[in-house]
Deep mutational scan, measured.
Amino acid sequence: CFKERTRHLLREWYLQDPYPNPSKKRELAQATGLTPTQVGNWFKNRRQRDR
């Protein structure tokens, strides 16, 4: 489970761009302490949920 702060950051970025490029994923991974793969999976799952 991700911390509330991490989820908030991910949601904020998702609203700006639901399809982040690899450099954005790396930047967000550094900001949250997650791996770029975890960030990518979160975005993928969130896009699925929004369908």
Rank of each mutant, 00 (worst) to 15 (best):
Q30W: 14
Q48C: 12
R11F: 05
E12W: 08
L10P: 03
Y14Q: 01
E27C: 07
T35L: 04
H8G: 12
L15T: 12
L34W: 06
V39A: 01
R46Q: 14
L15D: 08
A29R: 00
T35C: 00
S23I: 06
W42H: 03
R51E: 12
R7S: 12
Q16Y: 12
T32C: 11
N21A: 10
R7V: 13
Q16F: 10
A29F: 00
N41A: 06
N45V: 05
Q38M: 07
L28Q: 01
G33F: 00
T32Y: 02
L9H: 05
G33H: 05
W42E: 04
D50S: 09
A31I: 15
T35N: 06
T6Q: 11
P22Y: 07
R7Q: 14
R46F: 06
T32R: 03
E27N: 04
E12A: 07
Y14I: 05
W42Y: 01
D17I: 00
E4Y: 13
K3T: 15
A29N: 00
W42R: 03
R46G: 01
T32V: 09
N41S: 09
R5N: 12
K24P: 02
Q48N: 14
E12D: 12
Q48V: 09
R49A: 09
D17P: 02
W42I: 00
F2V: 10
L34F: 04
P20F: 04
K44A: 11
N45A: 08
D50R: 03
G33D: 05
L28D: 03
R5S: 15
R51T: 06
Q48D: 10
Q16C: 07
R7K: 15
L34R: 04
G33R: 04
D50V: 01
W13V: 11
A29H: 01
S23K: 06
W13L: 10
Q38P: 01
L15Y: 11
E27V: 04
F2C: 14
Q48R: 15
G40S: 15
W13R: 05
R51C: 04
R5V: 09
P20I: 07
L34D: 01
G33V: 03
L28G: 01
R46T: 13
L15P: 01
W42Q: 04
F43D: 03
G40D: 07
L10D: 04
Y14S: 01
L9S: 03
H8C: 13
L28T: 05
N45T: 07
V39I: 12
Q48I: 13
T37K: 15
H8T: 14
R46M: 09
T35M: 04
V39G: 00
Y19K: 10
D50Q: 11
R49L: 09
F43N: 01
E12I: 10
L34E: 05
V39M: 01
P22V: 04
N21Q: 12
Q30H: 10
L28N: 00
D17W: 01
N21E: 11
A31L: 14
L10G: 00
P20T: 01
Q16S: 12
L28P: 00
D50A: 08
R26M: 11
R49W: 06
L15V: 14
L15K: 13
Q38H: 01
N41D: 13
R5W: 06
G40W: 07
D50I: 00
Q48A: 09
G33S: 06
Q48M: 11
L28V: 08
Y14H: 00
R11H: 07
E4W: 09
L10H: 02
Y19R: 11
T6F: 04
W13P: 00
R47P: 02
Q16M: 10
K3E: 12
T6A: 13
K3W: 09
F43R: 01
R7C: 09
R49K: 10
Q30P: 01
H8K: 15
A31R: 11
T37R: 14
K25H: 13
T32M: 05
R47M: 03
R5E: 14
E27K: 04
T32P: 03
P36I: 12
R49P: 03
N45W: 06
P18W: 07
R11Q: 15
N21F: 02
L28Y: 12
Q48L: 06
A29L: 01
L10Q: 05
R47G: 03
A29V: 03
A31P: 03
A31N: 12
F43W: 01
D17E: 05
R26L: 14
G33W: 02
N21I: 05
N41G: 05
N41C: 11
Q16H: 08
A31V: 11
P20G: 01
Y14V: 02
F43I: 05
E4Q: 09
R7H: 10
E4R: 08
D50N: 04
R11E: 15
H8N: 14
W13E: 12
Q30M: 13
G40E: 13
Y19L: 07
Q16R: 11
T32A: 06
R11N: 15
Q30I: 14
R51W: 02
T6Y: 07
Q16P: 03
Q38S: 02
Y14L: 05
R26C: 14
T6S: 11
F43G: 06
Q30E: 11
Y19E: 08
R46D: 04
P18G: 02
L9P: 05
G33T: 04
F43V: 00
R7M: 14
R11L: 13
K44S: 09
R47A: 05
R51M: 07
R5I: 11
T6I: 15
H8Q: 15
N21C: 12
K3Q: 08
Q48K: 15
R26Q: 15
N21M: 13
N41E: 12
R51P: 09
N21T: 15
G40F: 15
T6E: 05
T32E: 06
K24E: 11
L28K: 10
L34H: 01
N21P: 06
W42D: 03
E4V: 07
R11V: 10
P20H: 04
R7A: 14
L15F: 05
P36H: 06
H8L: 15
F2W: 08
P20A: 02
L34M: 13
Q30L: 10
F2R: 08
D50Y: 02
T32D: 04
R5C: 12
Q16I: 06
F2H: 13
R5M: 14
R49F: 10
P20W: 00
L15N: 15
K3L: 11
Y19I: 08
Y19H: 08
G40I: 03
R26G: 09
N21H: 15
K24M: 11
F43L: 01
L10W: 01
K3C: 13
D17A: 00
L34V: 02
G33P: 02
Q30Y: 08
V39Q: 07
R49Y: 08
K24F: 00
E12F: 07
Q38Y: 03
E4A: 05
Q38C: 03
Q30N: 08
P20L: 08
K24H: 07
D17L: 03
W42A: 00
R49G: 08
Y19G: 02
N21S: 12
P36K: 09
H8R: 15
F2M: 15
R7I: 14
R47F: 07
G33K: 04
T37H: 13
W13N: 15
N41M: 08
W42S: 01
P20R: 00
P20M: 02
Q30G: 09
P22N: 06
E27L: 07
W13T: 11
